[in-house]
Computed example of a mutant assay.
Amino acid sequence: MMKSFRKMKACQAATVLELHESFLIKDFVVPLLLQDKLSVVEDFLEDSSFHQNSIVMFLDDLLEEKNIPEEMERISEELKVEDAKLHRFNQKYINKLIGRYLKDFKLSPELCPNYVALQKRKALHFVIWKKYIDKTLEGESWSEMMLEVVKDCPKLQYEMVESLTGHLDDDEAYRWCNYFQLDKEKLPARLKYMIETANLPNDGEEENWDDEEEIESWKNSPAVDMSNFPEVPIKMPKWKKP
């Protein structure tokens, strides 16, 4: 307990004396974070962009771990942290901390690719739910939202296609395969067979999609962290053989 108290006092002293450059996050920022001393940690971080970046990258690396509790226990033992609140450190809590620090310290999301991927995956599930379960998302607004979620992430593009085939919407799955020119060998078996046998829908007229109200609803939704939507309507390609 005395060591924990000393680390907290050392962190507070370093903050007051502006000695940030003399310490790494593992000296007392990480130990105090594990002890749930967030106010002390954040006072220290406030005046050091280097440590802000470092702690966000540290937390983001944890999101990549298959067994977060086990990794937190290892770190706690390595740093000799007493009274660590390890039960708090699950994916949800770490995700919340990263989002908080990105916002409070105005940091770039590029620091935390695992966090960004997790947010986009949540957005993907939300958009799929809106279309196939809630049945309140159709047409151009569906295309714009889905494109915004997966356009920069090939891995999510394949996950999207798998989800669409899981909802038995092979036609829509093929449209996106065609749009992103996805590798046929990585597609779900049923969709791959559909392409190989050229069992494709006939060309038809483009749909006239118009659902501006739904787009605004999505932009303002608290369920996902997505805010940028293209100003020009997205036109999905007509069906064609690959």
Rank of each mutant, 00 (worst) to 15 (best):
L168W: 12
D171H: 00
D170F: 02
K155L: 15
C177M: 15
L182D: 11
R175I: 13
C153H: 11
C153Q: 08
L168G: 04
D169Y: 09
E172P: 09
M160S: 01
L191M: 05
E172G: 12
P154Y: 03
K155S: 13
A173C: 04
Q157V: 05
E172S: 15
A173Y: 06
L191D: 05
Q157T: 00
L168N: 14
K155E: 13
Y158S: 12
L168H: 12
K155Y: 13
A189T: 15
L191E: 10
Q181F: 10
Q157H: 01
M160R: 05
G166Y: 08
E185A: 13
F180N: 01
R190K: 09
E159V: 07
D183N: 06
D183P: 04
P188F: 12
L187D: 04
F180Q: 02
T165L: 00
A189G: 06
E162R: 13
C153V: 04
A189F: 10
A189C: 11
T165V: 05
L187N: 01
K186M: 10
C177D: 12
D170P: 01
K186Q: 13
Y174C: 08
K155H: 12
Y193K: 15
W176D: 02
D171L: 02
H167T: 07
G166A: 13
L168T: 11
Y179K: 14
Y193V: 14
T165H: 01
E185D: 14
D171K: 03
Q157R: 08
N178A: 10
Y193R: 15
V161H: 00
D170N: 02
R190D: 07
A173V: 03
K192I: 11
D169F: 09
Y193M: 15
P154C: 03
L164P: 02
D170K: 00
L187E: 04
K186F: 13
A189D: 12
D169E: 06
Y179P: 05
D183I: 07
L164V: 03
C153S: 08
S163A: 12
K155M: 11
L156W: 02
D183C: 07
K192D: 13
Y158D: 11
L187C: 03
E159D: 10
L156I: 02
V161G: 02
K184T: 08
D171M: 01
C153F: 05
L187S: 00
P188W: 10
P188E: 13
M194G: 03
W176R: 14
D170G: 00
M160W: 07
G166L: 10
R190P: 04
V161R: 00
M160V: 04
S163D: 11
M160Q: 06
P188Q: 12
L164C: 08
L187A: 01
H167K: 10
S163W: 10
Y193E: 15
D183S: 05
R190A: 12
E172T: 15
G166D: 12
L187V: 03
C177E: 14
Y158N: 09
